[in-house]
Amino acid sequence: MAKAHSHEHDHAHGHQDPEQLKQFGFWLFMVTDVILFSTLFATFVVLRGNIAGGPAGADLIEMNGIIVSTFILLTSSFTSGLALLSMNKGNKQGLILWLAVSALLGLSFIYLEVSEFVHLVHEGANIGTSAYWSAFFTLVGTHGLHVSLGIVWITSVIIQIARRGITPATKRRVNIISLYWHFLDVIWIFVFSIVYLMEVM
């Protein structure tokens, strides 16, 4: 879709720039993902008291790791913004650098989360222990899965930028992945607040 003259024609005929169409489409997809997480949150809130005589979240959650993860993810959201700024200045090296930093921070987040899950399982809390833990692992794990897919995605975008440089099509890919990355940080804010903070209160 990188044919310059076609966009002028399309615009004159009232048709949208295809890159903008895709960005709008992705925004709508994110909106549906909000609903997906809403359902997971609703399930968690409804079932959070059901520990079936087993361990409670407050018994096993270790906030230190969570605090570190939170700041890591927050920072990676910021660095993805820096990537976007580089891109808008036409700075290909900066773009790739900051995307890579964001991905690495994301990877650290996942590493910490997996470690947390392993610790919880060792302490006797797995997805089948009680409704509370089923909801916990599913909500937190779904977010983690989204982050993991995002890391793969960022990597693929980095490769495409390295090969093709900054073009309307690669710009759109960067805009979309950074939107996705910010969205994941927003979800984490609520996971952090509702799953973790409200548990250890």
């Binding site: 399930t43 079932l47 059901n50 409704a131 089923s134």
Partner: peptide
């Protein structure tokens, strides 16, 4: 969630383990 109940033994909608079929 129903799949997780069946596949991984989760307790979202089971009658035991704190699950709630009404949900």
């Amino acid at each position: 969630l129903l799949f997780l109940d069946r596949y991984l033994g989760a307790h979202f909608f089971t009658v035991d383990g704190g699950g709630n079929p009404m949900m």
